[in-house]
């Protein structure tokens, strides 16, 4: 708390106030803003400030009794605001601590998401994931065990910390499912559905796409649990198709079964996977249609996969004035 002796704060305040009262008002505004910031930073409360004001007035003017009394009344009134002010300061402090904790949690989460894209002889792969806030509810994982390439992309309902916590659960569930290495997409999703249905809150659910590519047979097989369809690009037809797959989101109902889809991938074909943070993007009032995303992909599909994903992300962010409203994940695979 500032004391009301004739300290530097009071002197500065007196100087500014006198200049303000003697017609320099325009020039003083900027300085007074600086002083106000300074005083706030140094814990001068609203009541302190009015006391300071009264002090200066007493020193420089002869105040009549009524004015004097009114100022004292104002100081009393300000005391209440002062309590608010201290509470606000305390909250700000707590907020800072919380922010720091979230920063740490976000770091832990970043380490959890296997962001590394494995090296692949038979495909060029790029992946990018960006949270709307610090914590992400998106998850992706790309594993190449030498025999098969497995790719997972998932979107946990909601944003922020609850979604991030659910994401960690998904990650560990995936790691612990024994068939994970050899399993068919349909059985992996059925297993994960059991985990989510058992452990998540009733309004929580997860959409997931799981695909496996066999470089010997060139077959890409996949299942989807309520996930936004990806895109399949056929080089021969020079045409994009929805990577259509139907299935219930994880956690909606116990015992959900998943259909498996398969297609032969030719050299030059591409697969793009995304979360609905991509398709739910709104450009001003209108939604960005899937056709538009295809256009964006077409514009950069001649580039290496890692650059395609970065470019598409940049373009989509630009449309939203560089402020993501939802977590965003995008994977490109060029065969």
């Amino acid at each position: 708390m500032g004391t009301m002796e004739d300290g530097p704060q009071l002197a500065t305040y007196r100087d500014l106030l006198i200049r303000y009262m003697t017609h320099e008002s325009e020039l003083v505004i900027e300085e007074s803003e600086l002083l106000s910031d300074f005083l706030q930073e140094h814990g001068v409360s609203p009541a302190d400030l009015v006391t300071m004001h009264l002090e200066v007035m007493k020193q420089t003017r002869t105040l009549d009794r009524a004015t004097l009394r009114s100022m004292e009344f104002l100081i009393n009134m300000m005391a209440g605001y002062g309590r608010e002010y201290w509470e606000h300061q305390e909250l700000k402090h707590k907020q800072k601590q919380l922010d720091k904790e979230i920063d740490v949690a976000a770091e832990v989460q970043k380490a959890l998401i296997e962001g590394k894209v494995p090296h692949c002889d038979f495909a060029d792969i790029g992946a990018i994931s960006e949270p709307a806030k610090k914590m992400s509810g998106d998850y992706y994982r790309i594993v190449n065990d030498g025999k098969r390439l497995a790719v997972t992309i998932a979107d946990i309902v909601g944003k922020g910390i609850p979604a991030a916590m659910c994401m960690s659960m998904i990650k560990y569930a995936m790691d612990s499912i024994p068939e994970n290495k050899q399993g068919a997409p349909s059985s992996i999703l059925a297993n994960l559905n059991r985990v989510v249905a058992r452990n998540a809150d009733s309004s929580m659910f997860v959409t997931m796409f799981y695909g496996v590519y066999d470089p010997v047979t060139h077959v890409f097989s996949n299942s989807s649990a309520g996930h936004e369809p990806g895109f399949y690009y056929s080089a021969q037809q020079d045409c994009f198709f929805d990577l259509e797959a139907r299935g219930m989101s994880l956690g909606l109902a116990s015992g959900s079964r998943y259909k498996e889809y398969a297609r032969v991938i030719e050299p030059g074909d591409m697969i793009f996977l995304l979360t609905d943070g991509v398709t739910e993007i709104r450009k001003d009032r209108d939604f960005i249609e899937r056709e538009h995303i295809i256009k964006l992909i077409r514009r950069s599909m001649h580039l290496p996969a890692a650059r395609i994903v970065r470019r598409v992300l940049y373009e989509l962010k630009r449309m939203q004035h560089f402020e993501l409203t939802d977590d965003f994940t995008f994977i490109a695979m060029k065969f």
Binding site: A197, R198, S202, F205, T207, A225, G226, H227, E228, P229, R246, G247, M248, S249, G251, L252, A253, S254, G255, S256
Partner: peptide
């Protein structure tokens, strides 16, 4: 449709009640 909610609603209306609660 995509998330599977349509199917879930249809199932509960048939009276299956196959939700996880």
């Amino acid at each position: 449709e995509i998330t599977g909610l349509t199917e879930l609603i249809a199932r509960t209306q048939v009276g299956g009640g196959d939700t996880n609660e």
